[in-house]
Design a protein around this nucleic acid. Structure first.
Lengths: 200, 200
DNA sequence: TAATGCATACCAACTGGTTGGTATGTGTGC
DNA sequence: GCACACATACCAACCAGTTGGTATGCATTA
């Protein structure tokens, strides 16, 4: 990925890192500027307020992760079910390194700001549900291919994957480890496999 | 439940309410004292610091929710699988009212403090995994009764229920609604039902 | 071609209000 | 009297945001 050169991009990178580590409120403007290597003046040249930065960070996160998933190998499978299972496997494969490196910016941020910063909440919602939306087509295709007409929808299953992954991140932060999180990914994979195991 | 009479209990109630609404860091000592109807002097008589209150709040949450679940009707089922499924149904039945009323204090708090307040992180971990632990016996009994010897463990399935519920709370905060959350509970229930649907 | 004016991207210092916490005082019950 | 459970007043540090400035680039004009 091209190195960030502008102050705005540096601040967004700093926001992704520090907010995942410390939360939104505990991350101060001074922290962000120090991490980005710019001054408060530069900050306020690009952002109207701290909340403006938070909203931009959620959108930036959505774009960046969107690119990551767009280029992920699970799209290469021909079978839609393999794509869905491959997506879950991919999510597990990137649950590595320091906890803050693989946990989610928007899931972290929305927990504490959902009442006080509606614009940030909406940006977080759009990121989470927008990302879930990228899975719906493959899930629906797998349902059609298997002749499934269950009581649940492709959309609710897609949302469910995001909920369990967000919850896995909470377990990671609670334990400061990825062990319980990876077990959750295995259960999620098992659930999807079970759903489509039934023959029609 | 008996009304809270001491300042300490009032502060803990205030902490549960305000931290679920605003997050830990954004909830100030002044906010807590105002909500509890006491002064800073009372606060610091009972708590050494804000972080001390945070740790006590996590423990208080664990005790209070422990009592709630201990008295929940799902224990009445004779069949252990019915108790597990009943537990999930119960979790869904209390996902009602204002979002902050049914979301989780410890899941909210650990997201932002896990690096900066290890004592709070541990109290949150103990609450989450301790609560998961209360399900292990029923899950194991259901496994034994159904003759299941899967690759996963009762403990990992118990942890998985907590992860998906925590994630469901994140979706609730992102959408300011319980709709997506209840769908997640339905998927969780479906998964557990599927696991035990197989005959031996 | 050079001067000028303006826009942009910053910088360093500053500000008013807030914050977590401290010091001291007071009332009550034993 | 002392311990306890508070209340009040205060403090130093911190916070988000502001202010006045500089440096640079670009378009326009003479």
């Amino acid at each position: 990925m091209a190195p960030r050169t502008t102050a705005r991009e540096k601040l967004l990178d700093a926001a992704v890192k520090l907010i995942r580590q410390h939360g939104y409120t505990a991350t101060t403007l001074d922290d962000l500027c120090a991490e980005a290597g710019v001054t408060k003046g530069a900050f306020f040249h690009h952002f109207k307020s701290k909340d403006d930065l938070g909203q931009a960070a959620a959108q930036f996160w959505d774009e960046r992760t969107g690119t990551l998933f767009l280029e992920a190998p699970y799209h290469d499978h021909e079978d839609p079910l393999d794509r869905v299972l491959g997506y879950i496997d991919f999510r597990g494969s990137i649950m590595d390194g320091e906890v803050h490196e693989f946990t989610c910016l928007v899931g972290t941020m929305v927990q504490e700001v959902y009442r006080d910063a509606p614009e940030i909440r909406k940006a977080c919602r759009d990121s989470i549900f927008g990302h879930a939306g990228t899975l719906v087509e493959d899930i629906q295709a797998a349902m059609d291919q298997h002749g499934l007409t269950p009581s649940w929808t492709a959309e609710s299953l897609a949302n469910y994957t995001q909920a369990t992954l967000q919850g896995a991140y909470i377990l990671a932060k609670a334990t400061d480890s990825n062990e319980a999180s990876l077990e959750c990914v295995a259960h999620l994979r098992n659930y999807v496999a079970l759903l489509f195991a039934n023959k029609h």
